[in-house]
Design a protein around this nucleic acid. Structure first.
Lengths: 150, 150
DNA sequence: AACAAACACTTGTATATACAAATATAAAAA
DNA sequence: TTTTTATATTTGTATATACAAGTGTTTGTT
C-alpha cells in the first residue's frame, strides 16, 4: 500500500514528505511486528537491545556508557532498563573495582539462553520484510538510506 | 556513516538485519531532528500530527476514530492527546449532536496559526534529508520502502 | 419493550522516555 | 593538600505509551 493510502492523505504529497512519512511508518510496522515476537518472552524491544549488546561483549562486562552508545535510540534510562533485566536475572550488575564510578553489567546464562531461543525468530522477523526485495534491491535500499541520513 | 559504525557493531551484519537497523536508526534521526523543530512551539510530534489531520479536514470536525486511523503510529491515547491540545486552545471538542457517542474535534484559528508558522520549517526539515538524493534516487527509495513493507 | 451486542470514547495502571538535577568518584589544577 | 573540573551513574518529575477494563450510547434481536 502506498504511504498516502496508509495515512489516508487527502492531498498529494511532495516526494520529500512521502519519504519522511514512509520511513516513520515503516519503522512502526517493523517495531509492532518485533514486539509481537518478543511478547511471549516478556522483554521489551529496548531490553532485547541491551541483552544483544551484552552478548556482543563476549564475556567482558559492559558499563552503562558503553551500553548507551551502542543502542539504536538514545535513551536516558539505561539504569532503569538494566534494573528490569536484573529483576529477571538476565544480567548481573557490580561496581567496577578499578573505577568505582563505573558499573559492570554482564549477561547471565539465563539471558544467553533467552537470546539463543530468540535468535531464529529474530532472523525470521528481519527476513519477513526483506524477502520481498531481491539482493540488488536490498543493497540499493541500504545504500539509499545511508546516503539519505548523512 | 554506515549503520554498523553507528551502532558500533563488533560483527558483520546480514543485509536483512542491516536494513531493519537502518530504518529504525534513520527514523530516530528524523524524529530527533523534528522534535528540535517543534520544541520552540511546545507541542510534541504526535500533537503536531493531530493538528495536521484536523487541518486536513478543511473545516469539517473529526471524531476520535478518524484521528486515530490517520495517525502514523497506532496510539491508544487520542483522548489524552486532544486533552493537551485543548489546554493550549489549539482545538475545540464537542459531543456530536447526531450521535452522542462521538466527539467532534476541530482546529482553532490559533491552531491554524501555529501550523502556518511551522509549515516552512517542516518543509525545510523534510528537505534537509532528501536533498542528499537526486530525484531518481528519491523515487527509488520511496518505491523500495513500499515494496519492503508490503 | 427488554436484552444483548456493537460502537465510540475514557480511564486506570504499569511501564517507558525525556530532561534536568543530584550523587559519588576520579583526575587535574592551584 | 584543597579546590575545581570532569566523568559515570542515579534519581525526580513530567509526559508518553500500551493494554485492559469501564462508561455511556446506539443498534439489532427476540
Amino acid at each position: 500500500m502506498k504511504i498516502e493510502d496508509e495515512i489516508k492523505s487527502t492531498i498529494p504529497l511532495d516526494i520529500s514528505k512521502k519519504i519522511t512519512l514512509n520511513i516513520l511508518y515503516t519503522q512502526n510496522v517493523i517495531t509492532d511486528n518485533f514486539n509481537e515476537v518478543l511478547k511471549p518472552y516478556d522483554i521489551s524491544g529496548e531490553q532485547y537491545n541491551v541483552l544483544r549488546i551484552l552478548r556482543g561483549q563476549k564475556g567482558n562486562p559492559a558499563n552503562m556508557c558503553l551500553i548507551q552508545e551502542r543502542m539504536l535510540a538514545r535513551t536516558s534510562n539505561t539504569t532503569r532498563l538494566v534494573d528490569k533485566l536484573l529483576l529477571k536475572n538476565f544480567v548481573t550488575r557490580n561496581v567496577c573495582p578499578e573505577n568505582r564510578r563505573k558499573i559492570e553489567v554482564q549477561i547471565t546464562q539465563k539471558g544467553l539462553d533467552v537470546l539463543k531461543e530468540l535468535d531464529p525468530k529474530v532472523i525470521a522477523h528481519d527476513q519477513l520484510f526483506s524477502k520481498k526485495l531481491n539482493t540488488e534491491e536490498l543493497e540499493q535500499l541500504n545504500y539509499l538510506l545511508e546516503k539519505y541520513r548523512n
